[in-house]
């Protein structure tokens, strides 16, 4: 398991390659990359600043990965979340999961993202032509996280 909270960009290709490097037992790597969009709530977004809670952020992400490792047979996990000011098109988050078969990798990757959305202490602030505003949490994110408790 490896978790990073950083200002710098990341190389998704290199991260995916690293998840199977030296382990021929890996038969599947699923990955997710989240990007800054140029629009939200019908307004143009010129930039986004991600604030976080140093210390708790790393701990929360590590706990989410440990929970995923308890639910699926995983051979490697990598989570990177950026903070600071980002422009549309820039990468925000990377989740990569390696496993023997695709089912575990797909499910764990989605689970980690759903839990990250509701449990990791990050907050987005968008800059729009009408000024800056904090992004509201979405009920659909809570629902996405809650469905993992049902099964």
């Amino acid at each position: 398991m490896s978790v990073s909270v950083q200002r710098e960009d990341f190389d998704a290709g290199a991260e995916i390659a690293a998840l199977s490097a030296g382990n021929a037992g890996v038969g599947a790597v699923a990955s997710f990359v989240g990007l800054v969009r140029d629009a939200g709530h019908d307004q143009r977004v010129e930039a986004m600043t991600l604030e976080h809670y140093p210390g708790m952020t790393e701990r929360a992400l590590a706990e989410i990965v440990v929970e995923a490792e308890g639910r699926w047979r995983l051979l490697g996990t990598r989570v990177i979340h950026r903070h600071g000011r980002l422009l549309p098109g820039e990468r925000i988050v990377f989740v990569g999961v390696a496993s023997a078969h695709r089912g575990d990798a797909f499910a764990a990757c989605e689970f980690i993202m759903d839990y990250l959305k509701t449990r990791a202490p990050f907050w987005k602030r968008e800059e729009t032509p009408e000024g800056a505003r904090w992004v509201d949490a979405r009920e659909s994110d809570d629902e996405a996280a809650a469905r993992w408790n049902a099964n």
Binding site: T118, F122, K124, D136
Partner: peptide, 23 residues
């Protein structure tokens, strides 16, 4: 993350914040 019933004795780090919006 804790609910309102989490006990305090002094000396802890307590944070308050809006619902998170990362990812």
């Amino acid at each position: 993350m804790v609910g309102p019933d989490a006990p305090l004795a002094g000396g802890e780090e307590v944070a308050f914040f809006p619902p998170v919006t990362g990812g």
